[in-house]
């Protein structure tokens, strides 16, 4: 699903965010990406979402070589992945329903299918009853669930998450992680960047550890 081959990323010619990073994710895996802040977790995610391009090496995701992907094709690549952000990035001027519907709207899905899919996604995160609410009326944990619903509403093969439990208490964090495990169980490949080591240790999945832009460990959980 994901292949990093000797990937390096430099900013402004001096600062080296990633150096010679190699790893592979198979379809259907659930993997944590961890390390201190500044270790390169964000860079990996930015490269995977095509926000940035690698300075060196090759990244292949679901058959797409991201370094070679033309800017016209980038949107269509992004539609195949789902992204959960740390601060959930909901749009506060529209309802929960409209937020979750956004990826489908972008893909030009007919309105009838949109409603069905959005309700299915909201149901999965347990917030079907809040579809008419505005994000501001929801708690932090609920907002993050909406963010997840939006990331999976178009049934992406790959789900990326950047510190999805960053601002949540341990109980809520565990709930969120359980959601990711649910999606993983039905076949979605999941990559979660997190520095919540205690939580990661409990969940027993594969862990990629970054330090100063280098991959220093690739541990199998179980």
């Amino acid at each position: 699903m994901i292949a990093f081959e000797h990937v390096g990323k430099r900013y402004g010619g001096r600062f080296e965010a990633l150096a010679d990073v190699n790893f592979r994710l198979s379809r259907g895996e659930m993997v944590f990406l961890t390390g201190h802040s500044g270790a390169g977790k964000s860079s990996v995610l930015k490269l995977l979402t095509c926000l940035e391009r690698p300075s060196r090496g090759r990244i292949v995701v679901a058959g797409h070589d991201l370094g070679q992907l033309g800017s016209v094709r980038i949107p269509f690549y992004r539609r195949q992945i789902g992204v959960v952000f740390q601060n959930h990035q909901l749009l506060f001027d529209r309802t929960v329903f409209d937020n979750v519907a956004l990826p489908l709207l972008i893909q030009g899905m007919p309105a009838s299918d949109v409603a069905r899919r959005v309700r299915a996604a909201l149901d999965k995160v347990g917030l079907l009853h809040r579809e008419r609410a505005l994000p501001i009326e929801l708690s932090g944990g609920e907002q993050q669930r909406i963010g997840i619903a939006r990331a999976v509403v178009h049934k992406p093969a790959l789900l990326l998450a950047d510190e999805p439990t960053g601002n949540l208490d341990p109980q809520l964090s565990a709930d969120i992680m359980r959601l990711f495990e649910d999606f993983n169980r039905i076949g979605t490949t999941v990559l979660i960047a997190s520095h919540d080591l205690a939580l990661i240790a409990r969940l027993r999945h594969r862990v990629l550890r970054l330090k100063d832009g280098r991959l220093i460990a690739d541990e199998n959980g179980s």
Binding site: T49, L51, P75, F76, Y77, R78, R79, G82, V83, Q89, L91, L102, P103, I106, Q107, R150, A151
Partner: peptide, 16 residues
Amino acid sequence: RDEIEVVTLIGATHAF
């Protein structure tokens, strides 16, 4: 700005 960033990241084309 934020909205543009979000929709771009979830696959919106420039036209969108």
